[in-house]
Simulated assay, not measured.
Amino acid sequence: MTRLHGKTALVTGGALGIGMAVAQRFAAEGARVILADRNGEGAARAAAAIGANARAVTMDISDESAVAAAFAEAEETGWAPDVVVANAGVQLFGQDAQIADLDLEVWKRTIDINLTGTFLTVKYAVRTMLKNGGGSIILTGSPTAVNGEGKDFTAYSSSKAGVHGLGRTVAAAYADRGIRVNTVQPAYTETPLVAAISEDPESRAAIVSRIPIGRAGTPDDVAGIMVYLASDDGSFATGATFQVDGGMTSL
């Protein structure tokens, strides 16, 4: 498997869940991979498990100086990414709520990480790619951005709607300069992010019942489409949303 041979990828949220699975799959496809996460120790463990073609960087995506420093270090060490997966995010179970009950600080924290953090990641990815002849940027979206799945998660749903809009805007702005931007929209995918659902049998059964394929998603379900978008096979794809949701948003 060498679909990504010669490419260097930076994956945010690389310490766990979808980010770690994508980094592992990219490396298996021949890429060098930078696992970026505010949990630097977790990212380092994940990178060590991958091997010599992986390295870790501590990066809080909501902190512009940290994002700028991580991309600068990658360039200075010959690891400038031509693939960037903006995947890191939070979903504040027990705090996010319907709008009448939503605390402003929960709103701000969610937006700061999910939307502003994605903005900063994409900003520095574009700056890097403009210097190096283009590349592929992949965003992690959510069904909550497009339907009523997120009615009890006002901040999270709004942040992901912003991510979807950001992807289309940046794709249109830079298509003529060799930069592609696409959004992957997983359905309910069992990762540490959603432990509040996966560890509650009633809540888990309720959400799985709305997935026509009849099961929860896994991080590996998401990795394959990201390989396609990162590879030259996806060279004509930009500004699109790719649903990997077991049919959840098709009904």
Score class of each variant (00 low, 15 high):
116 T>V: 14
166 L>H: 05
86 A>K: 01
139 L>C: 10
96 D>S: 10
211 I>Y: 00
74 A>I: 01
21 A>W: 05
78 G>T: 12
176 D>L: 14
98 Q>K: 13
94 G>L: 12
11 V>F: 04
55 R>S: 06
88 A>D: 00
205 A>Y: 13
33 V>T: 06
124 Y>K: 12
187 A>F: 08
34 I>S: 06
165 G>L: 13
234 G>C: 10
140 T>E: 12
108 K>L: 12
42 G>R: 01
73 E>A: 14
45 R>W: 10
131 K>A: 12
205 A>P: 14
15 A>W: 00
163 V>Y: 02
136 S>Q: 03
150 G>M: 08
68 A>R: 10
96 D>T: 13
123 K>S: 06
71 F>A: 11
240 A>G: 04
107 W>A: 05
176 D>R: 14
180 R>M: 07
57 V>G: 09
243 Q>V: 09
25 R>Y: 07
122 V>R: 01
215 R>K: 09
244 V>E: 00
155 A>Q: 05
200 D>L: 02
50 I>L: 11
237 A>M: 15
179 I>A: 05
164 H>S: 14
160 K>R: 07
165 G>S: 12
179 I>R: 06
8 T>Q: 11
244 V>D: 00
28 A>P: 04
161 A>C: 03
179 I>G: 00
195 A>V: 11
49 A>Y: 13
37 D>N: 01
249 T>Q: 05
132 N>R: 15
26 F>W: 01
128 T>E: 15
241 T>I: 14
213 I>D: 04
23 A>C: 09
211 I>L: 01
90 V>H: 11
72 A>E: 01
84 V>M: 15
204 R>T: 10
248 M>H: 10
244 V>W: 02
62 S>P: 12
156 Y>D: 12
168 R>L: 08
39 N>C: 02
177 R>H: 14
207 I>T: 09
120 L>E: 07
131 K>T: 06
155 A>P: 10
33 V>G: 00
86 A>L: 00
75 E>F: 15
160 K>F: 08
225 I>W: 06
174 Y>C: 09
9 A>G: 14
109 R>E: 05
237 A>C: 15
128 T>Q: 15
45 R>Q: 14
212 P>M: 09
47 A>T: 03
47 A>H: 00
48 A>S: 04
242 F>S: 05
65 S>A: 11
148 G>R: 12
247 G>I: 03
190 E>D: 07
227 V>Y: 02
238 T>C: 04
216 A>E: 15
170 V>S: 01
111 I>D: 08
137 I>A: 11
229 L>N: 01
190 E>H: 09
146 V>C: 09
41 E>I: 09
115 L>H: 01
193 L>G: 01
66 A>W: 13
236 F>R: 13
89 G>W: 03
130 L>A: 06
250 S>H: 00
49 A>S: 11
248 M>C: 07
210 R>V: 05
170 V>F: 08
125 A>I: 13
233 D>T: 12
69 A>P: 02
219 P>C: 04
240 A>R: 07
221 D>R: 10
138 I>C: 07
235 S>E: 03
228 Y>S: 04
246 G>V: 08
26 F>P: 02
36 A>P: 10
67 V>I: 02
197 I>C: 10
100 A>K: 13
71 F>P: 09
210 R>W: 07
83 V>F: 03
157 S>Q: 00
134 G>A: 08
97 A>V: 10
113 I>R: 11
193 L>E: 01
148 G>E: 12
151 K>W: 11
128 T>N: 15
148 G>M: 14
251 L>D: 05
